[in-house]
């Protein structure tokens, strides 16, 4: 019996989406459901999870207020510094670099991704540690400078680690920016600076928003860089989660914190999309 066209098309669609759907269900939806269930449970006497139905864990969230505060501060601030460094780079790559060298330069931005972030962050530990830059400073008479395990080191590590994720979307949005719009702006009497702020910047905002949202969301879960370059003194939600699951073994509380974090991420993403839509004037915004 022959299938009708619609039925066939539906079958093809299902087949195409099946692997991703199964993957997402098993590795995203199911764990999330488990996390939600854990979050209304209780901690066992020796740790772990004990079935219950209580919102005590959520009521206890203020116990990690400092971690939330640090994270909600770090994520946008880190993303902002990333942006400050990334925008000129992306602008140079997309607008100023000669097309002949562009591909090479863009791949140079991506190349660090081929190495583990862990290894690269370790490299920074050595560069910032006493045997690195402070040692060089010592040679010119500036003794006992401490760079490692400072907020500055964490910021540096974050900007370094997430820079490519910020550069790429901005680069893409600048690269597809219609050059005639810039000429039109100049034609209408706008000086280059004015053209940048009236045309280039607003039209690259979708890329900026994508980059900011991407980096912010990843930073909300950041754990490694503050741990390694901040000496464990800088405590983020990621660190709180690690400690709750790996030290005090308070799974329900950890789950409640993680569920809340997911909620925050969703809100951040929605706000970012709204802003990008409003600014670009269309709904054709590629936000991740």
């Amino acid at each position: 019996m022959a299938l009708t066209m619609t039925a066939k098309r539906r079958l093809v669609t299902t087949a195409l989406l099946a692997p991703a759907s199964v993957w997402l269900f098993v590795f995203l939806v199911l764990p999330f459901i488990a996390m939600v269930i854990f979050s209304v449970g209780e901690r066992g006497p020796a740790g772990g999870y004990q079935a219950a139905f209580t919102f005590a864990q959520y009521a206890n969230l203020p116990a990690r207020a400092a971690a939330y505060w640090n994270t909600l501060l770090l994520a946008p601030v880190g993303a902002f510094f990333c942006l400050v460094v990334a925008y000129p780079t992306a602008y140079y790559l997309a607008v100023k670099a000669s097309p002949r060298h562009r591909l090479l330069l863009v791949s140079l931005v991506v190349v660090p991704f081929w190495t583990s972030l862990l290894v690269r962050t370790y490299a920074w530990m050595y560069i910032l540690g006493s045997r690195g830059i402070p040692n060089l400073l010592d040679m010119i008479g500036i003794a006992d400078v401490r760079l490692l395990n400072t907020p500055g080191a964490v910021l540096l590590g974050i900007v370094y680690g997430y820079l490519p994720l910020m550069i790429m979307p901005i680069y893409v949005s600048l690269e597809k920016l219609d050059r005639r719009l810039l000429e039109a702006s100049a034609d209408l009497g706008a000086k280059p600076v004015s053209t940048f702020f009236s045309v280039t910047l607003p039209l690259s905002l979708p890329g900026v928003m994508t980059g900011v949202a991407l980096v912010t969301i990843l930073l909300l879960g950041e754990y490694l860089i503050p741990q390694l370059l901040g000496g464990g003194k800088v405590f983020f939600i990621g660190n709180a989660l690690v400690d709750l699951f790996l030290q005090s073994r308070n799974w329900p509380f950890g789950s409640a914190i993680a569920v809340t974090l997911v909620a925050i991420v969703v809100v951040v993403l929605m706000v970012a999309m709204r802003i990008a839509w409003r600014i670009s004037g269309t709904r054709q915004v590629d936000l991740i």
């Binding site: 219609d178 005639r180 009497g189 009236s198 004037g281």
Partner: peptide, 29 residues
């Protein structure tokens, strides 16, 4: 430079600023 010349151009495919409304496009100059 283009921005100091007393000439204006109607571009191929118009090159209108997509992020502005009609009024803001016209007011730009």
């Amino acid at each position: 430079p283009a921005y100091r010349r007393p000439v204006n151009m109607v571009f191929q495919q118009y090159a209108l600023f997509p992020h502005f409304d009609v009024e803001k496009n016209v007011a730009y100059g």
